[in-house]
């Protein structure tokens, strides 16, 4: 039989735990029970200046950022996250890629980040790369989806559905961009991908927002 002092200790700990539990601010999210729809990336108009590329978009992004990408001579996908101002983006000489993704056909391989705190591990000048890509007709462009910076849609899917048949998967498109692809069969309409998508690429099928 435990002595009284241990019972007292137990109640003190229980009290502190309850204070933490009820005092804690937990964020509650509400998910619409709808099918998602993947929206294509905004169209791009491209102008090359001296040491500068101007890219004009046909529509904005939800969080004001976009991925600019270009494929390298090694067939890998190099990208950087850029702010969008007045529907336009500038890529200047000296803008280095943030990440590299190995691509095998439509399959996505290893992802590596190119920066170490405030220093680059490996510098790949995106301006030079885009010029090379244009010259050699490799894929380049912009991508609303923030993959590989963000993987929330597939994470949301994995948290609800068995991994063998995910309704939302990432795939490489014909123009080289990496976008989510939605397969309706098996989708439980949990709505997580819609709420969690920061870029507006995945929207409600019934009520898409205006770009």
């Amino acid at each position: 039989m435990m002595s009284n002092k241990y019972i007292n200790y137990f109640f003190i700990i229980l009290l502190i735990t309850l204070i933490i539990h009820f005092g804690r601010k937990a964020y509650t999210e509400f998910f619409p029970g709808e099918y998602p729809m993947v929206v294509a990336t905004a169209k791009l108009e491209f102008t090359a200046g001296e040491n500068e590329l101007n890219l004009k978009l046909s529509g904005t992004t939800k969080n004001g950022n976009i991925i600019i990408y270009a494929y390298g001579p090694d067939g890998n996908f190099y990208g950087m996250l850029k702010p969008v101002k007045d529907l336009s983006i500038k890529v200047r000489k000296g803008d280095n890629a943030d990440f590299m993704v190995q691509i095998y056909g439509r399959e996505i391989g290893k992802i590596s980040f190119m920066k170490k705190m405030d220093r680059y591990i490996r510098k790949v000048d995106m301006y030079d790369l885009i010029i090379e890509a244009r010259k050699h007709e490799w894929n380049y462009g912009v991508q609303n989806c923030l993959y590989p910076v963000c993987t929330r849609c597939t994470d949301g899917c994995k948290s609800v559905v068995s991994i063998e048949r995910l309704p939302m998967i990432m795939s490489v498109m014909d123009n080289g961009e990496i976008m989510p692809v939605f397969r309706k069969g098996g989708c439980p309409r949990c709505g997580k991908c819609i709420v969690w998508c920061p870029s507006g690429v995945i929207q409600k099928e019934t009520q898409p927002w205006e770009r």
Binding site: K25, Y27, C150, T151, R152
Partner: peptide, 23 residues
Amino acid sequence: CIECAACERVCPVKLPILDVVKG
């Protein structure tokens, strides 16, 4: 922050970092 939750995934004590971010 784009709330990709990569930080939550690697946290050794599984702190709900996004709760703080949203707050």
